[in-house]
Design a protein around this nucleic acid. Structure first.
Lengths: 337, 337
DNA sequence: ATATTTTTTGCAACCGATTGCAATCGCTTC
DNA sequence: GAAGCGATTGCAATCGGTTGCAAAAAATAT
């Protein structure tokens, strides 16, 4: 059906090795040989089978793109960036959806069957066990949006969630709120824990500010909405730092339903700065996670690992910045004491 | 590094063929042989290399998942469904981002290098040339969310956009609007043309209703917003059928900015019913595109093609249903004449 | 002109699996 | 106990490439 190396060799009247070399740069081929081979190849519409060559070279140029975040719109942006960046490097993303997978061993087996050259785990909620399992099986791994620690077991690139919590607290403090709260995602997620930690840490410097906390059952709109509905029944705070943007928007919807206004009655600050947060009818004040930089850096690390597999695990941390929009009162308004 | 078939064969003291057969079901192996091989295999942590076997079997179990819709949130839902459905069939999605690719030949070459077993094009805006190019190169193709015609050149599964336009018109008519409008995506997209066609077709039966139309420069929030801002300066209609949900939300934001209220002053109906449309602070009335059914059906077709490559191209059309939410006035309210 | 060095090319083995064919095995039957 | 038979197993070729090595060709030196 489709032309193979052998067909090209025959048509050009040269050996198969010659053809192979004509297609690998850096190989020892004369200019006229290359020309000749290329002619035959284009006549036959030949292009070498990466998978066959992977057998001898050991490289498939396949990168496992592993995630379980198929419900958070920001991950569409992440996938867009990853696929394009990989394509630019001549690599191909093999997409793996781990939404209802709990056993790392399965994923490892699967990715090994396809002998991927590397794996990038793109998730803020996937347990570190997955990353480790990949690494243990000898595949280069980078965990994007993972938990950064001082002694990473695999490459990690992301933000400092503790610091993000701190920034959120500072932001709320600077705006004079006297009763603030943390509304996190599921308590088990390490990102949730870290953000809370930073938040509380900073607030402990301001003992006069009242602080409370609660946790939504998922990082989703409905969960955020339900949680805020609950809170509104009880004694609600003046401002909330929500686990992420989706959660924030859910909370906003609950607030609006109760005819309360934002930011006058209640302030909200999210985290991520997904595209939707900037939509004018959402207009969410949020802490921006620099996803472009995180993706670029992750790709950089994975390609570095391909060149130098023994490279030691490294953590790359990016700073977050607050993006002011309309869900927090302005900084010059101070609360009446 | 990782165990191969040969290692297992040596360890079990059998031939390589025996090992191979032990791992392919339907092969001629005795029970005790299989047991013996499996023991050795599990001791070595062996699992067969799909890529190597693809050389002889001609199947990689790789499916190219090709799209250029990496900015429409509904496609995250689509990717989620596709990846899971493919995984359930033991197939692997090789993700291809065609956002800034214009030449089908490049994509074809790329996918052939990886000898994918099939390609699913998931896009409502990608020119049909891509689908055809894949088919011409001998790869099974199904175009999901593509334009359905009576004489499809490749398998297509999607909705009848003309009918969707018609439904939109009927919906607006039933609610007594006297001046309705179509606000499409880019005029070149066939989906836009078809939706407009159906819309006008239906309205031509009601000559007393005034109808106008315009086109946003992209299927995006900003484009929808900008277009509606323009429209509001001029003579705006009572209700708009927007090209899709994202466009609709952009339009909504412009309307809200002008202190006009929805659905009292202006009605909006979208198309897609992406998750966000149901968020309570958006609450968009829209025409639901049955993405789950489209995905399932696409996968069905692609696997059918794997079994029977000569199968003739087929079009599968799903009906759309309107999802009532809050951006259109209720059906019993008739306009004052 | 020949001798020497450097490039280019082809041969053949190999990557990790599958598979047609023939040899072998275990049983049944006479 | 020998013949006959179907079910297993191993041999060896093959899939589409790559690559070490040695032979051939070209370039350079003498």
């Amino acid at each position: 059906m489709v032309a193979t190396l052998k067909d090209v060799a025959e048509r050009a009247g040269v050996s198969r090795s010659a053809v192979s070399r004509a297609f690998t740069d850096g190989a020892s081929v004369s200019a006229k040989m290359r020309k000749r081979v290329e002619k035959a190849a284009s006549e036959l519409g030949f292009s070498p089978n990466v998978l066959a060559s992977s057998l001898t070279t050991g490289r498939t140029k396949l990168i496992g793109l592993v995630s379980n975040n198929f419900h958070n719109p920001i991950f569409l942006e992440v996938f867009d960036l990853f696929t394009r960046a990989l394509q630019d490097q001549g690599l191909r993303p093999l997409l793996v959806n781990l939404t209802d997978e709990t056993d790392p061993a399965n994923s490892v087996r699967m990715l090994r069957q396809y002998s991927v050259d590397g794996v990038v785990v793109a998730s803020s909620t996937l347990p570190p066990a997955f990353g480790k399992a990949f690494r243990d099986s000898g595949v280069p791994v980078v965990h994007a949006f993972g938990r950064v620690t001082s002694a990473p077991e695999v490459h990690v690139v992301g933000i400092d969630n503790i610091d993000a919590g701190r920034i959120a607290a500072q932001t709320l403090i600077a705006r004079g709120y006297r009763h603030v709260a943390f509304m996190g995602g599921p308590e088990v997620a390490t990102s949730t824990q870290d953000r809370l930690k930073g938040f509380l840490q900073e607030l402990s410097l301001h003992p006069q500010i009242r602080v409370s906390m609660s946790f939504a059952r998922a990082y989703s709109f409905e969960a955020g909405r339900a949680e805020m509905q609950d809170l509104l029944w009880r004694d609600h705070a003046e401002a909330y730092f929500c686990g992420d943007d989706v959660l924030s928007i859910g909370a906003l919807s609950a607030i609006q339903d109760r005819q309360l206004s934002v930011p006058e009655d209640i302030g909200i600050i999210g985290l991520n700065d997904m595209e939707i947060a900037g939509w004018h009818n959402i207009n969410l004040t949020t802490i921006r996670q620099p996803i472009k930089e995180i993706v670029t850096s992750s790709i950089e690390l994975i390609t570095a690992m391909l060149r130098e597999p023994a490279r030691l695990p490294e953590a790359r941390i990016f700073a977050c910045q607050i993006v002011e929009r309309g869900t927090l009162r302005p900084i010059n308004t101070t609360a009446v004491t």
